[in-house]
Design a protein around this nucleic acid. Structure first.
Length: 999
RNA sequence: GCGGGUGUGGCGAAAUUGGCAGACGCGCCAGGUUUAGGUCCUGGUGUCGAAAGACGUGCAGGUUCGAUUCCUGUCACCCGCACCA
């Protein structure tokens, strides 16, 4: 596709470059500097034409009025925001949300508001159809860019953030979005911080009890940690070593309890970058294992981090996807991310103890001829022998004299490799022998134990049983290292034929591993025989055997890992946690919020870039007075000295439950007011959540997880936070690179004969996201300046289906502007400025057009098909302006104004007021289509001969088939095509079509 | 490699879901208004063809009276994940 070639391109126009001295040149490079030209009329033009100046004046006036009158204040059932609720108590509630933005320093570009405008159009339509609509906008204002800006400039991130938020608020207000400003929260607000920390504490003070029944009736639920402690104290739950709870030391008790919490400390593999002093994400690590920023080495190593036990909810996070109305691709992505697979755990005995593996194919255990551990696996050092066993294959040693040296070298090589590098698919597998063997439990054979980086520490147990005949990676590894390959399944002859080889059970002749189904072979020991059985049956039999012999059991494995929740940064929510000499202690909620302490040193401490063993020092570590806190935690110990937790929360924390904050933005000392929460969340949660698909997994999974914990704890009443999700597409734009590959300012590029030039230099055109980095930024401000916010809104909605990505083209905006000009002229005489609607009655034809438009607009709204209604409104407008060039009947003008109101609210308010209405039209009833006008008297029926349209008949609606066929045969054009031919079949669908099949 | 998505005029797109392909808009062309350019208004505009007509929804097949729509294969592009056992 991408057939945008050869054409004209935003933001330049094709054609010769005219002199810049003339005014209003659009087709010239002058617009590059000035942006789109305002549609200001030349002196002498109509004084009351709808143009940028008039639109700007109207928009500012109505925005002020909406603010003053609190037009978009949405009442709660109870509490401080409940004024006016009685008036809407009978209405249906509707909670419409956008994914709130991170306020970046660059401000909004025209792509950002696409979803915001769509939800606003939807919300306004719903208000006009009698709903009590909650719609507002918040800011996800903690985050790395603000911190990096602070590091670079020395300016506190709060200042930078507040400036950015102010810019966003101004830009969003200019768009006329109908948000309740009282609810427009920022995650960095003191109250919001307290809210986030309070939820954290509830999660911290909870554990997942697999025995409990959750509110949906299923197994497993979060419970307050006190109930765990009580069950230990009562003896209903045994301690790990069986001693009574009361005889455990405080340290033992706390360690035991902490190990059950939903938030816990653990050693996890991370990308440690000493040069930056922080842990970096995979995507921040370059292919050669260095940091994106600064180009420092990055080391993979284990480090103690805070984790959230999201894996406890894996089953429910998959199952409850059935409860939500979400795009299927997103649900699929979540299922794949969680990655539930059925299989078995199997224990292999070794000199260092049992090695547990997870396998999805326990039926192939007889073919497990070696084992592979991830290089980081905890048992590697215990398995590494002092010397190579006699007769060790030289390929297994990597040329080292001792296993220790070979293993050490391999481990450090793997650690210095980035994940990206490690995951590059290569033909040659690498690995090294540990010197140890394990026992295959099912046949008693000794199998050598290797380490190799194709086994990942993060999935399963970090160790695998290798079945080279049934797994391609194991197969390649076995070939590489000369390991035995034994068939466990007889592949069908067709498989051999497909790979040009002879059927055989001797795997030496196999071209590759066989991963399909088939009868088991070589699968017999003293107490088990799988031979001849199919996959499912063999798995069941093997799982039963493992269980009976204490060597394993059937098991479910997920790819999902627990959520790494700590960041070694400054600009984030501090943990409401302190530490004593034993471990972490939660602060009581009465001590919230724990404010972020002030400092002017925002960067974490950096280290010698090569010092892999250095430990991170966080910005908050430096604030010694803050870190050392003497507090009375109310636990009976009185004033004690503690160390505050100095990690901060990840940016996701603030976005997990912000919808609850929208509901009760002023609430303190509680998470929700139950009556408000039940009202707005209803049975199924937020009614509509609109945002980009880039959040399909992480944000939406974390948010669902927190919500489910709160659900189990009785704080919220719905199992899922978001009933309906809609992914809007991206608006993209062209970008240009010079011969060195550097981006050049897109607004300075000219097109000549299909080629592109920047200051005379030939440049290359690319297509991508709008933004500073591609130097193709277009801000909504400049479009508002040139045309007005209503035009921008209308244009963005008309660009195409909301869910589709599409390119920005500033020139195309004028179409929306012209439509608004025509709508304006329907009501207002642009010379005199007077209202010019008439009291004459609309004709029947007028009403047919009107009511079809109403029907089309109404029918499209619920599905957020926001683009096609504009085409129908355009048709109605064009009908009115051509039929009534001097003013349309009021009975047509008024509904037209109401129809366009969700899209162009300022213009609609202005016209509505000029039509004599005192009240804002925000809650005026949306026009309702009269079915009588939707059915026409006559209908056009195409007549085909052999599937080709030869004529179109206009016939009475409801004309029966035989009459229709007779009319069609009688039609001159049709008859000429039927001449000399035999009609073999006539397909007649009354009201639709006639098709004659002839030969 | 796996998973998901998208391919329709010069461009953004529409097609009531199997029934007139290209609504509506941008751009372009012509005309009008205007001192002039722009704005604004009117008309035209899928391709080939003088016309009749033929062709046309990435490509190749199939099902059907009839396919942008359903099926099979294939190509291109985009997004996500990736040695996941």
């Amino acid at each position: 596709m991408e057939g945008v070639g050869g054409g004209r391109v935003y933001p330049f126009l094709v054609g010769e470059v005219k002199t810049a001295s003339r005014r209003g040149l659009v087709a010239c490079s002058a617009m590059s500097d000035a942006g789109p030209q305002p549609s200001t009329p030349a002196p002498g033009g109509p004084s009351f034409r709808y143009n940028a100046t008039l639109a700007g004046e109207i928009e500012a006036r109505w925005q002020d009025r909406w603010d003053v009158e609190g037009t978009f204040y949405t009442p709660n059932p109870t509490g401080p925001l409940s004024e006016g609720f009685d008036a809407v108590a009978g209405a249906k509630k509707l909670f419409v949300m956008d994914m709130f933005p991170y306020p970046s320093g660059a401000g909004l570009h025209v792509g950002h508001p696409l979803g915001f405008i769509a939800t606003d159009v939807f919300a306004r339509f719903k208000r006009m159809t009698g709903h009590n609509v909650l719609h507002t906008m918040g800011f996800d204002a903690y985050g790395l860019p603000a911190e990096q800006h602070a590091v670079a400039t020395g300016q506190h991130p709060r200042i930078n953030t507040e400036n950015n938020v102010a810019t966003y608020r101004r830009q969003l207000r200019r768009l006329g979005l109908g948000h309740d400003p009282r609810r427009a929260v920022s995650t960095t607000d003191g109250d919001f911080l307290e809210f986030t920390q309070r939820i954290f504490l509830r999660i911290f003070n909870a554990w997942f009890d697999p025995e409990a029944t959750n509110p949906l009736g299923g197994p497993g639920a979060a419970r307050h940690i006190d109930r765990l402690i009580a069950s230990f104290a009562e003896g209903t739950r045994p301690t790990p070593d069986g001693r009574p709870w009361s005889s455990l030391t405080e340290r033992e008790q706390r360690t035991l309890v902490d190990s059950h919490r939903l938030v816990y400390l653990a050693e996890v593999p991370v990308n440690w970058c000493p040069g930056l002093g922080t842990i970096v994400a995979n995507e921040e690590v370059t292919a050669d294992g260095r940091s994106d920023r600064g180009n420092f080495p990055v080391f993979k190593r284990n480090m103690t981090q805070w984790l959230m036990r999201i894996t406890a909810y894996a089953e429910r996070l998959i199952d409850d996807l059935d409860l939500v109305d979400w795009p299927e691709p997103v649900r699929l992505m979540q299922r794949n991310w969680i990655g539930r697979s059925l299989g078995a755990r199997v224990s292999f005995a070794s000199t260092a103890g049992d090695i547990d593996v997870f396998t999805t194919r326990p039926d192939t255990l007889f073919g497990a001829t070696f084992m592979v551990l991830a290089p980081e696996h905890g048992m590697v050092s215990a398995l590494t022998t002092d010397s190579w066993p006699t007769g060790t294959d030289p390929r297994w040693t990597n040329g080292h004299d001792t296993p220790a040296s070979a293993i050490g070298a391999y481990q450090s090589a793997a650690a210095s490799k980035s994940d990206v590098d490690r995951q590059v698919e290569t033909k040659t597998k690498t690995g090294v022998f540990t010197g140890s063997f394990a026992v295959n439990p099912v046949n008693g054979r000794d199998v050598p134990i290797f380490i190799a980086d194709y086994v990942l520490t993060g999935y399963g147990t970090g160790a695998i049983m290798a079945v080279p005949s049934g797994d391609q990676r194991d197969f390649e590894f076995a070939r590489q290292f000369g390991l035995p390959i034994q068939a466990t399944i007889r592949p069908p002859d067709a498989w051999f034929a497909e790979h040009q080889s002879e059927p055989s059970l001797d795997c030496a002749t196999w071209p590759m591993a066989y991963v399909g189904d088939g009868p088991a072979v070589n699968g017999t020991n003293d107490s088990l025989s799988l031979d001849g059985r199919g996959k499912a049956e063999a798995i069941a039999a093997m799982n039963a055997w493992l269980e009976a012999n204490g060597r394993g059991h059937g098991s479910v494995q997920t790819k999902l890992r627990d959520w790494l929740f700590s960041r070694q940064r400054y600009w984030g929510e501090p943990f409401p946690i302190v530490h004593d000499e034993i471990g972490p202690i939660a602060l009581p909620e009465s001590m919230l919020p724990v404010d972020l302490p002030d400092t002017d040193q925002f960067a974490p401490r950096s280290f010698d870039p090569e010092d892999a063993q250095s430990e991170p020092e966080r910005p908050l570590d430096r604030l010694v007075d803050w870190k050392n806190a003497t507090l009375d935690l109310g636990n009976g110990k009185g004033m004690c000295t503690y160390l505050r937790e100095t990690n901060v929360m990840p940016q996701w924390a603030g976005s997990c439950t912000y919808y609850l904050r929208y509901i009760d933005p002023t609430l303190v000392e509680a998470i929700t007011t139950p009556e408000n929460e039940r009202y707005w969340m209803g049975e199924r949660g937020v009614d509509l959540y609109v945002g980009g698909v880039e959040h399909a997994v992480l944000h939406l999974l974390y948010s669902r997880f927190w919500h489910k914990v709160l659900f189990d704890l009785g704080i919220v009443g719905t199992p899922e936070p978001f009933a309906r999700l809609f992914n809007q597409g991206y608006i993209q734009a062209y970008a240009y690179t010079d011969p060195r590959g550097m981006y050049v300012e897109a607004s300075e590029v000219e097109e000549r004969n299909g080629e592109f030039f920047h200051h005379g230099e030939r440049v290359n055109r690319e297509y991508g996201k709008i933004g500073k980095s591609l130097k193709n930024m277009v801000s909504p401000d400049e479009i508002c300046e040139a045309y007005g916010a209503d035009t921008l809104r209308l244009h963005e909605m008309s660009m195409g289906p909301l869910e589709q990505s599409k390119p920005w083209d500033t020139r195309a905006v004028s179409g929306a502007h012209r439509l608004l000009q025509r709508i304006w002229r329907v009501v207002v005489d642009e010379d005199s400025g007077t209202t010019r609607v008439t009291d004459s009655s609309p004709t029947n034809e007028d009403l047919v057009v009107l009511h079809r438009t109403i029907h089309a607009v109404t029918a499209a709204m619920d599905d957020l098909r926001v683009n096609t209604p504009i085409a129908r409104i355009t048709e109605l407008t064009n009908h009115l302006t051509s039929t009534y060039p001097n003013g349309a009947p009021r009975g047509l003008a008024e509904p037209l104004v109401l129809l366009v109101a969700p899209y162009a609210p300022h213009l609609a308010e202005e016209l509505w007021s000029r039509l004599g209405n005192r009240q804002s039209l925000i809650r005026s009833p949306f026009p309702v289509a009269n079915p009588a006008y939707l059915v026409a008297d006559t209908v056009d029926v195409p007549v085909q001969v052999n599937g080709k349209v030869r004529s179109v008949l206009t016939v009475a609606t409801g004309l029966d088939g035989p009459s229709l066929e007779a009319l069609a045969r009688a039609d001159e054009k049709v008859a000429s095509h039927l001449m000399d031919k035999t009609v073999r079949k006539a397909v007649v669908i009354p009201g639709k079509l006639v098709n004659f099949v002839v030969s």
